[in-house]
Design a protein around this nucleic acid. Structure first.
Lengths: 145, 145
DNA sequence: TTGGTTGCAAAACGTTTGCATGTGC
DNA sequence: GCACATGCAAACGTTTTGCAACCAA
C-alpha cells in the first residue's frame, strides 16, 4: 500500500527471473482495464516494438498464472483463455452476451457464502470465480433473439 | 414439480427433434451428479452399448446448451468444456484444486448483487457463473505446494 | 557457469465442419 | 418428402512441446 512495488520485485518475490518479456507482459496486463487473450497481448507487444514469440507469451502467462500474479479464465462462448492482472482487490466482471465486452465490477458478495461452504462441507475455500452475464449498455436496445 | 416431464417433452418444447442420441445424452446428464466432458460422455454412452460418434455428442451438447437445457463451463486448469443438466435450481460448484473433483452446492448469494449491478451500471443481468475453488475433504490433508 | 528462458516449427489437443447418408415428423 | 440429425474424416484454432540457442543470476 505504501511503497509502489515495481514489476521486478513482483517477479523476484515469486522466484521468477526478470526478463524483458515478462516485464513487458506484466506491465501490459497491469495497465489493461480488461482481460486479454494471449494472442491479443502478443499483437499488442509487437505493436510496441517488442520482439517476442507467441509461445513465450503463453509460457510467461502460464508462469504468472501459476504464481497467482495473473488470473486466467475461459468463457464458454469465446473459446480461448483470457488473462488479467491480479489486483488482489477482488474484482469480478460483467460480460455482455452480445458484444463479449468485459467490464470490471468491484465488490464481492461471497465472503459469507464461502464460510457457509467451509462449515457445511469439509472444503477449504481458496478462491472463487464469478462472472455475471447479460446485455451491456450499448447492446441492451438491440436485444431480441 | 407436479407431473414428471420426460426428456421427449423437454426436447419438443424447445423445438429439438427427438432422437435416440439426444434422449440418451439428456438422460445421462440428468442422472449425473457432476458436470462431464464431451469425451467422457461419449465413452459412457459407448459403454452403455449406444452407437454414437463423438461429433454427434458435441453437436447435441451444443444444441442443448444453446437452448438452455444444459450448462456449459470451462475451467482454467482443465482445458475442456464440461456440461451439466440445467436443473434450474441454481446450483454452483466447489472444485478441488488438487483432484479436480466438482461437487454441487445449492444456495446462491447473488440475487442482491445482481440487482446492485443492474442499477449501478446500465447492464441487464441474464445470469452468472460461479465456482468456488479449494481443497476437498480427501485432499485437504495432503496440501502443501 | 548454469539453470531457467526463448524462438521456431512441429505436434497435440479439444472442437468444428463439409459432405454424403440416414431419420424424425 | 423435407428439413434436420448423423458418421466419418479432414480441418480448425488454440495451446503445448522438443530442441538448440540464449541470457539472467
Amino acid at each position: 500500500m505504501g511503497a509502489k512495488k515495481n514489476y521486478n520485485d513482483i517477479l523476484k518475490n515469486r522466484n521468477l527471473k526478470v526478463t524483458k518479456h515478462r516485464y513487458a507482459i506484466l506491465e501490459s496486463l497491469e495497465k489493461s482495464k480488461l482481460p486479454v487473450s494471449a494472442e491479443s497481448l502478443y499483437i499488442e507487444l509487437k505493436k510496441k516494438g517488442i520482439s517476442i514469440s507467441l509461445s513465450t507469451v503463453y509460457r510467461s502467462l502460464e508462469a504468472l498464472y501459476k504464481k497467482g500474479i495473473v488470473i486466467k479464465s475461459i468463457l464458454p462462448d469465446y473459446n480461448k483463455a483470457v488473462f488479467e492482472y491480479n489486483h488482489n482487490e477482488h474484482r469480478h466482471h460483467m460480460i455482455c452476451i452480445k458484444c463479449h465486452k468485459m467490464q470490471p465490477v468491484t465488490g464481492c458478495p461471497l465472503e459469507e457464502y464461502e464460510k457457509l461452504i467451509e462449515s457445511k462441507f469439509n472444503f477449504t475455500v481458496k478462491g472463487h470465480n464469478l462472472e455475471v452475464y447479460g446485455y451491456c449498455d450499448g447492446c441492451e436496445s438491440k436485444t431480441e433473439d
